[in-house]
Write a protein that binds this DNA or RNA. Structure first.
Length: 295
DNA sequence: TAGACGTGGCG
DNA sequence: TCGCCAAGTCT
C-alpha cells in the first residue's frame, strides 16, 4: 500500500536524517531558500559551513539586498557557478521590493524569482512552508526510477512520465508529503546513490523493482560534462584571481589573464572568458583595462 | 531542448 | 589516475 510506503520512508528518515544546519529548529524560510540555492549542483558537505557563515552575515533578505556584489561573490567563495550568488542577491532585492522582505508561499510566486526554478520552488514550499509540492530533484528521480521503474539511472532530461509517476506517489496530506519529500531525497543522498548504492541498508530493497531485476546497469550513456580546457575553466580561474584581490584594488588585463595564456585551448580563450564574465555582471572594468569584482 | 555554467572529492 | 557526479537554472 501507498500508506505503508510513505510510513516506511518517513520512519527511515526519522532514524537516519543528517543533522544539516538548515534543518535545525528556528531556521527561517529565507534560510531554507539560501540552502536550496547553494545546494544546486554543489555537494551538501561543502554547502553547510558556507551556509552558516552566510546566514550569520545576512540573516534577512534585506541584509543581502543591501550587500555589495563583490562581498557576496567573495562570500560565495568556491561553491561554484558564481552567477547563483548574484541571482540570490537579486532574489533578495525582489523579496524586499515585491514581497515585503518575506519568502512567498506559492510555487508561482517563487518561480518568478531569479535563480529559482521548478525544483527550488517546490523545495521551498515543502521544506520552508510545510506545503504540498512535488519535489523532483536528482535524488528523487533516481530513487523512484529504481524502485518504481526498475531503471539504474533516470534519463538525462526530466520526462512527463516521471512527473506523473512521482505525482501519483505524493501523499495528499501536506505534512505527510513533506516527510515523503525529505525522506526520498535523503534516501537518494545517503543510500540509493548514483555510483555504489548501499542496497543492504535500504528500507525499500524488498519492493525495489531495479533490485529485484538483479540491479542491471544503466542503458543509456550519460552525458559527460566537458571541463578541461573549456571556457568554463578559464572563467573559474579569472574569478579565483579576483576573489583574492583586496577590496578596492584592481588588476590589469595582462596581469589578470597572464596565468591563463599558457595552456589555453586557443589564443582568444582568456579574453573571451573575461568578456563573458563582464557580460554576466561577474566582473567590472572601472577604468579601461582595469578589472575587479562588481561593486 | 541541448548546451553552458564551477569546483572538488570519491571510487 | 581520472572520469563521474553533486538538493539545477537559464537561454
Amino acid at each position: 500500500m501507498l500508506t505503508d510506503l510513505h510510513a516506511t520512508v518517513a520512519d527511515w528518515y526519522t532514524a537516519h536524517a543528517r543533522d544539516l544546519p538548515w534543518r535545525r529548529p528556528g531556521t527561517t524560510p529565507w534560510g531554507v531558500l539560501v540552502s536550496e540555492v547553494m545546494s544546486q549542483q554543489t555537494p551538501v558537505a561543502r554547502v553547510a559551513p558556507a551556509w552558516e557563515a552566510w546566514m550569520g552575515r545576512w540573516p534577512e533578505p534585506a541584509d543581502l539586498a543591501a550587500a555589495a556584489p563583490a562581498d557576496v561573490l567573495r562570500a560565495w567563495d568556491r561553491l561554484g557557478y558564481p552567477r547563483r550568488a548574484l541571482r540570490l542577491r537579486e532574489c533578495a532585492e525582489q523579496l524586499v521590493a515585491r514581497f515585503d522582505g518575506a519568502v512567498p508561499r506559492t510555487e508561482e510566486e517563487l518561480l518568478s524569482l531569479p535563480g529559482v526554478g521548478a525544483y527550488t520552488a517546490a523545495a521551498v514550499v515543502s521544506f520552508a512552508h510545510g506545503g504540498r509540492a512535488l519535489v523532483l530533484d536528482t535524488n528523487v528521480r533516481r530513487v523512484l526510477g529504481r524502485v518504481v521503474a526498475g531503471r539504474a539511472l533516470p534519463p538525462p532530461g526530466l520526462t512527463a512520465g516521471e512527473r506523473v509517476g512521482a505525482a501519483d506517489l505524493l501523499p495528499a496530506d501536506a505534512a505527510t508529503s513533506v516527510r515523503w519529500n525529505e525522506g526520498v531525497m535523503e534516501l537518494g543522498a545517503l543510500v540509493c546513490t548514483a555510483r555504489a548504492p548501499r542496497c543492504t541498508a535500504c528500507p525499500l530493497v524488498e519492493r525495489c523493482r531495479w533490485r529485484r531485476a538483479g540491479a542491471p546497469p544503466a542503458t543509456h550513456a550519460r552525458r559527460r560534462q566537458a571541463w578541461h580546457g573549456t571556457d568554463r575553466q578559464a572563467r573559474g580561474r579569472v574569478m579565483a584571481r579576483l576573489r583574492e584581490l583586496p577590496d578596492g584594488r584592481t588588476l590589469g588585463t595582462e596581469e589578470l589573464l597572464a596565468p591563463l595564456r599558457e595552456g589555453a585551448a586557443d589564443v582568444a580563450q582568456p579574453d573571451r572568458a573575461l568578456a563573458s564574465l563582464l557580460a554576466d555582471g561577474l566582473v567590472t572594468e572601472p577604468s579601461p583595462g582595469r578589472w575587479t569584482l562588481p561593486g
